[in-house]
Amino acid sequence: MLDDRARMEAAKKEKVEQILAEFQLQEEDLKKVMRRMQKEMDRGLRLETHEEASVKMLPTYVRSTPEGSEVGDFLSLDLGGTNFRVMLVKVGEGEEGQWSVKTKHQMYSIPEDAMTGTAEMLFDYISECISDFLDKHQMKHKKLPLGFTFSFPVRHEDIDKGILLNWTKGFKASGAEGNNVVGLLRDAIKRRGDFEMDVVAMVNDTVATMISCYYEDHQCEVGMIVGTGCNACYMEEMQNVELVEGDEGRMCVNTEWGAFGDSGELDEFLLEYDRLVDESSANPGQQLYEKLIGGKYMGELVRLVLLRLVDENLLFHGEASEQLRTRGAFETRFVSQVESDTGDRKQIYNILSTLGLRPSTTDCDIVRRACESVSTRAAHMCSAGLAGVINRMRESRSEDVMRITVGVDGSVYKLHPSFKERFHASVRRLTPSCEITFIESEEGSGRGAALVSAVACKKACMLGQ
């Protein structure tokens, strides 16, 4: 009897593995994704193909990295998701002549009506938060230079001027797309009239992360975010950046690689679950690469896999709870928690219980395998993109072996128990001629924006502006 049951459990697990095998990517698959990513990057950089390229390769006008001589107080704003952060950054000489960066910050959550109302409502709310922060720190009387981390696709015309191309991540505030974001912020500050600010720089969160990590390690020339969304930036040779005049030196390019796949480059790798996630998203047909990796989508992918296993009578005796059938019910943090389970399955059992399920031991094991399959594919897909960037940098610099540091931020990278190990191992397999160091950014977005502002202020002083 026991043997029969054991055989049935083994057969069930084997069927589960057959279904989950769809998520496995072979090294040849990853090399294919990497080569296609490089081709799209090239198209994004070139003037004649930029418009139709899915990977936009947006110039950021960040050319210099901090040298350690900029000092002063800077205000930093960070808008990239449902939370908005205001930070005071003091850049100065530390002990023994070292450079020191001290920060104080406060988080504000953005109400739904500000995210989806008008641009005026959104930026009025942001300036209200700045006003509140300055009151708390008794700094209303000071006109501070301000660095703005704005983590949406922007076409820069200068370091302090950028046109919002399109909202992502659930934002829909009308009247912002096609307009200068810094102008919208300046107008809102003017409307309030109770404080003055000098907006000197606007950067993407990947750029802010790279600059913040450069402060720790001067070989950091790539910034990457794996959180709600997924994106990367890197220092490109100016001669390859056709959208900006000049051939000397390097400029940081914001790849906006989340949109890779929007022209069909990933079609052969998309599964039924991916198509369902895409169809029910706020932007169907867009940001397809990001939807395979980002935390906004990972939990939902797992939920759809679990429903398939229920329908195949391989999980929960073929019956799903009402909660499990509800879109968004299986949160991405559950994926991390399930994979963090120590082996007694308590954590998995508790999560499934909150979803109205009474799982068996085998159910718990199957749910864990589903989570591992989805998150491992995410790590491997992400590795193909980064390997594409790094191999490109090595080739354009004609280096036999390139040493490089990548600064990384984002909740999936930082909080998932195995993502970074799987990701690092896969990147290294795909970049055999590179020695890569990964560092995690601390308060990256805010500190990085302030350091970019410090560079901009120093330049302005040198130019006598």
Rank of each mutant, 00 (worst) to 15 (best):
S54F: 02
A282F: 15
I404K: 06
D262G: 14
R303G: 00
D409R: 10
L270K: 15
A378E: 02
F269H: 13
K90F: 08
R403P: 12
L146W: 15
D267Y: 04
C382W: 05
K56H: 03
A378F: 02
A454M: 12
C461P: 05
V401T: 11
K190H: 08
T326A: 10
V277S: 05
S281V: 04
T437D: 14
A378H: 02
A11M: 08
C220K: 02
V181P: 05
V241Y: 04
M462T: 11
E319L: 11
L271P: 00
A450F: 13
F133T: 04
T342H: 09
M298W: 15
N180Q: 03
A449F: 12
R192Y: 02
R447K: 13
V406P: 00
R333H: 06
L134R: 04
N83T: 15
G147P: 03
E221R: 02
R5K: 06
Y273K: 01
G92T: 13
S433D: 13
P284V: 13
S109N: 12
V199D: 13
S336L: 04
L415R: 07
F419P: 00
K13D: 15
A320I: 12
F269A: 02
G175V: 11
M197S: 08
L386R: 00
D363F: 00
G318F: 08
R368P: 01
R368T: 11
E319R: 06
G94R: 11
E248L: 11
L314E: 09
C233A: 02
F423H: 08
R5Q: 15
A378Q: 13
E216R: 02
F330M: 10
R369D: 09
T255N: 04
R392P: 00
E51W: 09
D311Y: 01
G178Q: 11
D409Y: 05
I366R: 09
N391W: 13
H380K: 14
I130N: 00
R43G: 04
S64N: 15
S76H: 06
L184W: 13
M235V: 07
G444L: 10
G117P: 11
C252E: 02
V302N: 01
D247F: 05
D365I: 07
A11E: 10
E440Q: 00
L164A: 14
R428L: 14
V33Y: 00
R392S: 02
E157H: 11
A282Q: 00
E95V: 14
F133W: 03
F260E: 00
Y215M: 11
L304A: 11
D78G: 12
A460Y: 11
T361G: 11
V412T: 15
V310M: 09
V181C: 08
L144E: 01
T103F: 08
I159S: 15
L352N: 03
N350M: 05
L306H: 02
I225S: 11
M34R: 05
C461R: 15
P153D: 15
T206I: 04
H380F: 12
A449V: 09
F423C: 14
A282N: 14
D124H: 03
A450W: 14
V200P: 05
T206H: 03
D187R: 09
F123C: 15
V71K: 04
T228H: 04
V199N: 08
G249W: 02
S418I: 08
C434G: 01
G227C: 03
N166A: 12
A379K: 00
P145R: 06
G227H: 07
T326M: 10
E399P: 03
G183Q: 15
G388Y: 01
S69H: 13
M87W: 15
T405H: 07
T376M: 06
E216K: 10
A176H: 10
V154G: 02
K414Q: 04
E70S: 13
C129I: 05
R397P: 01
A329N: 04
M57I: 04
Q465A: 11
H380Y: 10
G464F: 05
L2D: 15
K12N: 01
E245S: 12
E442G: 02
I390H: 01
E70M: 04
L88C: 10
E67D: 09
R7C: 12
F123S: 07
R392K: 07
Q239G: 09
V33C: 10
L2F: 13
D344S: 06
R36L: 06
S263L: 05
G72K: 05
L306I: 03
F260P: 00
E339N: 02
L270G: 01
E256G: 11
F438S: 01
G295E: 10
E17F: 14
H218Y: 13
F330D: 00
R325L: 13
F423T: 04
L276F: 12
Q465M: 08
Q239R: 09
R85S: 14
R358V: 12
S433V: 05
G295A: 15
H141K: 13
P417Y: 10
H380V: 11
V71D: 01
L20C: 14
S433Q: 13
T255I: 04
G147A: 10
A21Y: 15
A176V: 11
G227L: 02
C129V: 06
K143D: 03
E319V: 06
L266P: 05
E93H: 15
I348C: 10
F419I: 02
C434V: 11
E443H: 02
L301R: 05
V199F: 06
V182R: 14
K140N: 04
A232Q: 00
C382Q: 02
R250C: 01
K15C: 05
M41P: 00
V335G: 02
D160Q: 07
R345F: 13
V200G: 11
H416A: 03
G356H: 06
T206F: 02
E245F: 10
G229V: 05
D132C: 07
E9T: 11
M37T: 01
G343W: 00
E51V: 03
E17H: 07
R333V: 08
E70A: 11
R308W: 02
T332V: 06
K420W: 05
C230S: 15
A176L: 13
V253L: 07
L386M: 10
D73Y: 02
S174P: 09
V16G: 04
L315E: 00
L463H: 06
Q337Y: 08
T405G: 14
V86R: 02
K161S: 05
F150N: 10
K15M: 13
G117H: 09
S411A: 10
G183F: 12
L45K: 01
A114I: 05
L30P: 00
D400C: 14
E442N: 13
P59Q: 03
H156Y: 14
L47C: 13
Q347D: 13
G44N: 02
I404L: 12
G446L: 15
N391Y: 10
R377L: 00
Q219S: 10
K142P: 05
I366L: 12
